[in-house]
Simulated scan of single mutants.
Amino acid sequence: MFRTVEFGNEEAGPFYLQHIRRPGAFERTQHVHELYELYYLYEGQRLYFVKDRSYQVLPGDLVLINRREVHGVSDFGTPGHERVVMNFSREFVAAMMEEAPFLLDGFAQPTPIVRLDLPPRREAEELLARMIREAETARLGQTLALRSLLGELLLFTARFVRTHRVPVPEHVSPIHRKISDIVRHLNVHYADTVRLNDLAAQFGISPPYLSRMFKEITGFSLVEYVQLVRVREAQRLLETTNDKVIAVAEQVGFGSLVQFGRVFRQLAKTTPLRYRQTARGKV
Rank of each mutant, 00 (worst) to 15 (best):
T4D: 11
T4C: 10
E6W: 01
F7N: 14
A12K: 02
Y16A: 14
P23M: 07
F26H: 05
R28A: 12
E34V: 05
Q45W: 11
R46D: 06
Y48G: 02
Y48P: 00
K51G: 06
R67Q: 13
R68C: 10
E69Y: 09
V70E: 14
H71G: 12
H71P: 00
V73P: 01
S74V: 09
S74W: 00
D75Q: 13
F76K: 09
T78F: 09
G80K: 03
G80I: 02
M86S: 06
N87Q: 14
N87H: 15
E91G: 13
M97S: 04
E98P: 02
E99T: 04
P101T: 11
G106A: 06
G106F: 01
D117E: 15
E125N: 00
E126C: 01
L127Q: 06
L127D: 03
L127S: 04
A129L: 07
R130S: 06
I132V: 11
I132A: 04
I132G: 10
I132F: 06
E134C: 04
A135Y: 03
A135W: 05
L140I: 05
Q142G: 03
L146W: 07
S148H: 10
L149A: 08
L150P: 03
L155Q: 11
F156P: 01
R159F: 11
R162F: 08
V168T: 09
V172D: 09
S173R: 02
R177H: 12
H189N: 03
R195Q: 13
L196G: 05
N197R: 14
D198M: 10
L199E: 06
A201Q: 14
F203W: 09
G204A: 06
I205M: 05
L210Y: 05
M213G: 02
M213Q: 11
K215N: 15
G219Q: 01
E224A: 07
Y225S: 08
Y225A: 08
Y225I: 00
E233H: 12
Q235V: 02
L238P: 00
K244Q: 15
V245S: 04
I246R: 15
V248Y: 11
E250C: 00
Q251D: 15
F254I: 00
G255A: 10
Q259K: 14
R262M: 15
T270H: 06
L273I: 12
Q277W: 06
A279M: 12
K282P: 08
V283F: 13
